[in-house]
Structures are given as structure tokens and as C-alpha cells.
Design a protein around this nucleic acid. Structure first.
Length: 535
RNA sequence: GGCCCGUUCGUCUAGGGGUUAGGACAGGAGAUUUUCAUUCUUCAAACAGGGGUUCGAUUCCCCUACGGGCUACCA
């Protein structure tokens, strides 16, 4: 009999779960990225936005940008625009949001201010929240007392609320009087004394928390604004969010959010949670911070940021010459992997391959060297014609006048040697102007024995040749070396220095052919004189 | 301190009860390009520790250690 009852109960629970799952499956996937505009967007934030975006697009869903500016004291001018611009640079687009609008506008919580109070009141009505009139001093005193009494974690909870000034302890007429008089108050969540709250996390599985460990969090502040907890639950509900993908730092407050959905009567459409592992500093431990970037010499922000108060400038990936696709590719693989050995992914490929199941649980240390490697891979992939467009502008700005086809050929030769496009000039200046200096030590080392004679002879041979292409140049060079009884390899580097001023670079005869006969023979002539003077 | 989360080469990670524990970045060595920063080959490098369960555990369970997050009328 008891077993039968148990079976029936089990069946009931099971069918409830099925109903819940079905309800979720009917809903179009909708995710949000919800930063607060308190400063520049950290690369960890970019990754959170990216994972949200990949997940949404993978499932044909919507991606929203919501600005969580419920703390007016932390408002930083320019931060919101910075966030929008950064994500645009990264190629992360939104279906709805502050900058693009949408059916659930406004998307800025400060503009939604009036919507929140009714939900807080609804909770008070239902007995799940209460008014509290305690001053900051009284709260501070309470914490001090508890600390003095050796209480493990001093908090406003089911025990301490008994000794505070709130609608649970004050006579109802006094509560009425205070509210009518406009006394400052907050609305606090009334956390039940002894319950177990289960958070189902898509990355971590079940997380169980005892309500006895939770405190009566403020839901509605005395300035008339909701706190994050209330606002994010209300907005996610109103905006029909199906999946909340956010940083691990939110995991401790997830049980509170679950309770909020339950008490507000929205548990059947509660979003599913996924708490992302943190991005860690490359050395030691701890969250990656702006300081680490300064200290170790890499940007932590997508774009350069100038602090509006201190004027301090923080470097950005964009300004440091990173290709956005490379930056995104690197970020995608910090905490997620496709389960294959593929490392280079376009955004489309990322969307295709992405799944929450393959996000790792542990924090990932950021690796600046690998980020450079990604950039190098992308630089090589970029067609020389594209590279030449921007490089041509740089050349022009330096006061030179060259054909774009010539510049494109230069790009073709040097792009394999560079990690960043901003290295192009230093790698290739000699294609555009006479080399201005030579490595004297190297010249001293190489400019001896039969070398000067060979070079003189080479100059004449080059002047006499009519076919100045790489293949013929190589043949001419080798023939001349043989004629002079000298190994071609042993004079190749000094020849390179003579015409380019540099000891290393792209294929020597390609470069010679590209620069052209007149310039090369002139440079050679000049170099011979200078080398003779150096030695 | 309390609560929660985590722990495979230096780093990002794959894997999963029996594997030579795989890949990538970085590092070492060699080759080739008679330069080289490319490319190729190659080397070194890891399951935090202790207990279980098991014929067998790096994999499952527990404990410890270590690391991290949270602990505001901040998000």
C-alpha cells in the first residue's frame, strides 16, 4: 500500500518534470547579456557575452543586451557605449537591446524603475518579503555585535531579523505610520528557516543549499530602485529569458533567484542556469584583473578605455593590433572546447560547434602568448589584398607613393613573418626607402676575404642582366659565386644586408626582384662603399 | 571564519575502470629553405595527497590539502 502510494507520487513528480521540460522546449531560446555600466567591459565579460551569443545562435534564438544600472552611485559615463562598441567590434550582435530596441523595451533597468516595486509588494503580500526600517548604523551595530559574539557569519536572517526594526517585529500600526510618513525602508526577502534549495546548473549539475545559510537579501532599496536580485529575475521573466549564462560569481546567489521565481509564481518558466568558470590571471591565482594586464603587458579590455574621472588610459586589443576574429577565437577556447583538435574557428563554425555541455568547470588562466599565436594564424589567413588596403594608408601617411599592387606583393612576402599587422612597416621599410643603417658587427664579421670582390662582380652581373625575376636572379647569383670561387650561401646574408639593411626577411631573390633592378644595383653600389668604410 | 564551486604536462585542454594518458601554445634539440622570424621532425613535460569500492582506479565514493568565488540598500 505504502509502496503503491510512493509509486504514484513518483509518477506525479515525473510527469510534472516532463511537463516542465516540454514547456521549456516549446519556448524559443532567449538569452541576455546584462552588464552593469560601471567601467570598461573586461575580456571575461566579453567571453560571457560570446557564450550567450553562440548558444542563442546555435539554437536559432534571440540575444538581448540589457543594461543593469540599478546602482546609480556607480554610474560611469561612456561605459555603456564602450560595451556596445566592444561587442560590435567582436562581431557579437543583438536581436534586442538598449542600442537596437525591441518588443520588451526599455532595456535599461533605470528606465524600468517603476516596474519593479509591484513585484516586491506582491512578495510582501504573500508573506515572502517584509519592510525593514533599519538604518545603516543599526545594521553595522548588528554585525559588530554578532562578530563580538563569535557568530560565524553575521547576517540579517531568520534569527537576527527578530531583533531588528521591520514589519515582522514592529506593530502593524507603526509600520503603517512609518510608511505613511515616508520613512526610509527597504524590502527584504523572508528566507524560510529550514529548507533545501536546489539549483540545477547546466555546467555543474545540482547545487544544494540550505536556506538556513542564506540571508534576507534586500530586494528593493530605499532609493526606490530594485537590487540586482529582484531586477534580474523580474526582467528575465518579463523578457522571456530561457537560459541564464553568467559568471561563476553569481552561483552563490542563484538559490535566492530560484526562490524568487518560486514565490513570484514563475517557477514553471524559470530559465535554466549555467555558471561559467572564471578567467584567471596568468601567474598565481585569482580573477584576471586590469592590474594583471598592466603588470604583465597585455590588454584586458577589448578596446582602449580612458577613465573619465582619472583620465587614465587602459590599452585594448583593438588598438594593440589584434584581429577581432582572433581575439574571439582565443576567448571561445578559454573554458570551452569542441572535443576535436580543431583550433581555428570562424564565428559561424563556433556557433555550429558550441554546446554548454563542453564548457569546463574549472577556471582558466589567460595565456597572452597563445593569444598572439591566434592573431598570427588569422593574419596569415587574411588575403594580401585586404592587408594591402590598410598598409597602403600607412605607407601613404609616411609620405611615400607606391602602387597598391606593389604594396600587395610586399604584404604577400612579409605576412608570414609577422604576428601583427603593425609590425609590417618595421619588417618591410626597405621596400619603400633606402636602408638607413646596417648592422655594423655583422658587416665586420662577413665583409672580408673574397667577399668584397664577389660583391663587386655581382653588381656588374646584375647590371648586365635583363631578366630580373627571382629564378634568374638566383641563377645569376649562384653563377657569380661559383665564378668567384665562393659558396653562395656564405654571401647570401651579406647581400641581404646590403640591399635591405636587415639580417633576416622573406625569400631573398623574391625581395630583390620586387624592389627592382635600378634600386637594387644602386643600393648594392652604395653598400659596397659603406661596407668598405666600416671595415 | 561560514557557505558554495573547483583540482590531468608551465598554460589551454582531450580522455575515461585495464590507454605508450592524446592535441595545442610556450620551451629544448635537429632538418630544410646554402638568410630567417616560415615549414617539417623530434625531445622534455601531467592525472594534488590519503583512504575506500574493484581482479584492476587517473577515471566512481569519502576525507584531507590546495585554489577560487560569495559573504553590501554593488552588480
Amino acid at each position: 500500500m505504502a509502496i503503491l502510494g510512493f509509486k504514484i507520487a513518483l509518477k506525479a513528480i515525473f510527469s510534472m518534470q516532463i511537463a516542465y521540460i516540454c514547456k521549456l522546449m516549446e519556448r524559443k531560446v532567449r538569452v541576455r547579456f546584462a552588464p552593469s555600466p560601471t567601467g570598461p567591459l573586461h575580456m571575461g565579460g566579453v567571453r560571457t557575452a560570446l557564450y550567450n551569443y553562440l548558444f542563442a545562435k546555435k539554437h536559432g534564438g534571440d540575444m538581448l543586451l540589457r543594461i543593469e544600472d540599478t546602482d546609480q552611485t556607480r554610474y560611469v559615463p561612456g561605459a555603456e557605449n564602450y560595451i556596445i562598441e566592444s561587442l560590435a567590434w567582436c562581431g557579437i550582435t543583438f536581436d534586442e537591446g538598449v542600442h537596437v530596441g525591441g518588443p520588451h523595451a526599455p532595456y535599461r533597468q533605470s528606465e524600468r524603475k517603476e516596474m519593479y516595486k509591484q513585484y516586491a509588494l506582491q512578495l510582501v503580500e504573500a508573506g515572502h518579503a517584509y519592510y525593514a526600517f533599519d538604518t545603516m548604523e543599526e545594521l553595522e551595530a548588528m554585525r559588530e555585535n554578532l562578530k563580538a559574539a563569535n557568530v560565524a557569519s553575521p547576517q540579517y536572517n531568520y534569527i537576527t531579523r527578530e531583533g531588528m526594526k521591520n514589519s515582522l517585529t514592529l506593530p502593524s500600526d507603526e509600520v503603517e505610520r512609518r510608511l505613511a510618513a515616508g520613512d526610509a525602508y527597504v524590502i527584504r526577502m523572508k528566507i524560510p528557516r529550514k529548507e533545501e534549495v536546489r539549483v540545477v546548473d547546466l555546467i555543474r549539475g545540482n547545487v544544494l543549499v540550505q536556506t538556513s545559510q542564506m540571508d534576507d537579501k534586500v530586494l528593493f532599496k530605499s532609493d526606490g530602485m530594485p537590487t540586482y536580485h529582484l531586477a534580474n529575475v523580474v526582467d528575465d521573466y518579463l523578457m522571456k529569458i530561457t537560459h541564464v549564462i553568467r559568471g561563476e560569481e553569481w552561483l552563490p546567489s542563484a538559490p535566492l533567484h530560484v526562490l524568487l521565481y518560486r514565490y513570484l509564481g514563475w517557477e514553471d518558466v524559470m530559465p535554466q542556469f549555467a555558471h561559467l568558470p572564471l578567467l584567471l590571471k596568468p601567474d598565481g591565482n585569482g580573477k584576471l584583473s586590469k592590474r594583471d594586464g598592466d603588470r604583465l603587458g597585455f590588454p584586458v579590455f577589448p578596446l582602449q578605455w580612458k577613465d573619465p574621472f582619472t583620465e587614465e588610459i587602459s590599452s585594448g586589443y583593438r588598438e594593440n593590433g589584434y584581429i577581432p576574429e582572433a581575439f574571439i577565437n582565443m576567448l571561445a577556447l578559454l573554458g570551452w572546447n569542441p572535443g576535436t583538435t580543431q583550433e581555428i574557428f570562424s564565428m559561424t563554425e563556433l556557433i555550429e560547434a558550441f554546446s554548454i555541455e563542453r564548457i569546463s568547470k574549472s577556471g582558466a588562466k589567460f595565456d597572452a602568448a597563445k593569444t598572439k599565436w591566434f592573431n598570427q594564424q588569422y593574419l596569415r589567413q587574411t588575403p594580401s589584398a585586404i592587408l594591402a588596403k590598410t598598409f597602403a594608408e600607412e605607407i601613404k601617411s609616411k609620405g611615400f607613393d607606391f602602387e597598391e599592387t606593389y604594396i600587395q606583393s610586399v604584404c604577400e612576402l612579409i605576412k608570414e613573418k609577422a604576428q601583427f599587422q603593425n609590425e609590417f612597416w618595421s619588417l618591410s621599410s626597405y621596400f619603400f626607402e633606402e636602408p638607413s643603417a646596417f648592422d655594423q658587427d655583422l658587416v665586420k664579421k662577413k665583409w672580408k676575404d673574397a667577399v668584397p670582390a664577389f660583391m663587386q662582380s655581382l653588381l656588374i652581373d646584375l647590371q648586365n642582366t635583363n631578366s630580373f625575376d627571382a629564378i634568374n636572379l638566383e641563377a645569376t647569383f649562384k653563377a657569380c659565386a661559383e665564378k668567384n670561387g665562393i659558396g653562395a650561401g656564405s654571401v647570401m646574408q651579406i647581400f641581404r644586408i646590403a640591399i635591405s639593411g636587415q639580417a633576416a626577411g622573406p625569400a631573398i631573390f623574391e625581395l630583390t626582384a620586387l624592389i627592382g633592378k635600378d634600386k637594387i644595383t644602386n643600393r648594392l653600389k652604395l653598400a659596397i662603399d659603406q661596407f668598405n668604410a666600416i671595415v
